[in-house]
């Protein structure tokens, strides 16, 4: 089963992402910030990471940067959830090793379509 790590400090976004992915048959683990996500990622391996950018403790970009240093996550797709105003963030995220981004607001269908671009 495809395992997805969904990281967002907003519980409602996390619920939405998780519900959508579980409905599509993915196995989802949630984390509320970068620190928690990194801890989980070190003990469990995932096929995909979806992370919000603005979060307390550790933001999404730092999370991606940290994850890319781990051998298990060198080629794992990592998507950022970002807002259209965050053009700088896209560039910064790419430099940190992000695979791509999903622009907020998005609906469940858009989310699934985007995910299918990176894992099939």
């Amino acid at each position: 089963m495809t395992k997805v790590l969904a990281v967002d400090d907003s519980a409602s976004m996390r619920q939405m992402v998780s519900f959508t992915l579980k409905g599509a048959g993915y196995d989802v683990v949630e984390a509320k910030d970068g620190v928690e996500a990194l801890g989980i990622a070190k003990t469990t391996s995932f096929n995909l990471v979806i992370t919000d950018v603005n979060m307390p403790n550790m933001d999404g970009i730092s999370l991606i940067r940290e994850l890319r240093t781990l051998p298990d996550y060198k080629f794992i797709p990592m998507l950022m959830l970002t807002t259209e105003s965050g053009t700088d963030k896209k560039t910064e995220g790419k430099a940190a090793g992000a695979t791509g981004w999903i622009v907020k607001p998005f609906n469940p269908d858009q989310l699934l379509a985007t995910i299918k671009r990176v894992i099939g």
Binding site: D9, S10, S12, M13, M16, D52, N54, M55, P56, L81, T83, K104, P105, F106, N107
Partner: peptide, 23 residues
């Protein structure tokens, strides 16, 4: 930063869940 984050989260959520005025 945390003030910004709160506004940012509300914006993201409201747009996603269809509350245009809040967004």
């Amino acid at each position: 930063n945390s003030i910004f984050r709160a506004a940012h989260s509300i914006k993201g959520g409201s747009a996603t869940f269809g509350f245009e005025q809040i967004a």
